[in-house]
Design a protein around this nucleic acid. Structure first.
Lengths: 151, 151
DNA sequence: TCTATTACAACATATTTTTATAGGATTTAT
DNA sequence: ATAAATCCTATAAAAATATGTTGTAATAGA
């Protein structure tokens, strides 16, 4: 398994959840409700959302009646932004980002492979926004409805 | 970091090393020399090579003068084969491989993203063979030589 | 046949990172 | 004031990442 960590996965679901609820009209979304909907421990989400907040991907409103909302428009938040905030980088291996990391990069055969794969991934994650994901979700739901109630 | 584990990384370097030495005429390559060349603990390589052997990506020759060699031609070993042997799968998340893994896949917005990224990666890793990597390495070396000794 | 070399195996141990839970402090609307 | 939230710190549990030890088995070459 080329592992996308739980931080990256849960954090993305958190952001998608926030985007969806915001589109449906919610002002501030409380983390507890996200935790329940997504089936993730609220204590863990609290930790995960910190870097999202630091990177201005979400804004927080403290106190009663508070919660979280997106830091900017859903179409301006790319998956890559989320992963970068949570995992440090969007790449598969350190050496692709940091040429100090390994002294063998100039002779390493595998390097070119990790570079190629990382570029592919980064391109993809840079191209997809939260808005795009919501659209995909809508199509899925519509398709499911057509299947359930044909004609 | 979307992490490619050390098993996957070291294992790939091990295989590339084996392929290169084999092309240069070595019969059996002893693990100790790979460990030294790659700067990886031999103890760890011993653990990593076990699944490579089980999956017939390498053959072992026991006893004095023994060592390891590729299980088949370098052009017939794809990166994907190596990663599958070492990491179980070539995918970013469990749910893409195993629909029993998470009950939310039908409604999960993020699912389509992980699926798309995984397909991209798999395609790429299925397309690159050890032979291809050696060719890339040759070009790099040639380019470096041209640069060092121009005209 | 003996010896050195090498793979193979089964553990044990240590360190670090990831994953997750817990308790309480702080802020704020009502 | 109180309840509802975020915020902050500590700790626990599990997995990944190694390293160490003590062998056994196979084989080439002297």
């Amino acid at each position: 398994m080329i592992k996308l960590s739980t931080k990256g996965r849960y954090g993305t679901r958190l952001m998608v959840n926030l985007a969806r609820r915001q589109r449906l009209g919610s002002e501030a979304v409380i983390l507890k409700s996200v935790a329940e909907e997504e089936g993730i421990s609220i204590r863990y989400l609290e930790q995960i959302i910190i870097p999202l907040k630091i990177n201005k991907l979400v804004k927080s409103i403290r106190g009663a009646g508070g919660g979280y909302c997106l830091g900017r428009k859903a179409e301006d938040i790319k998956i890559c932004d989320i992963l970068k905030a949570l995992e440090g980088t969007c790449s598969l291996v350190e050496c692709v980002e940091d040429d100090q990391f390994c002294e063998k990069t100039s002779t390493c055969g595998a390097y070119e492979i990790w570079k190629g794969a990382t570029d592919l991934l980064r391109n993809y994650f840079e191209s997809v926004s939260l808005e795009d994901i919501l659209e995909i979700g809508n199509k899925k739901t519509a398709a499911a409805k057509r299947k359930a109630k044909p004609k």
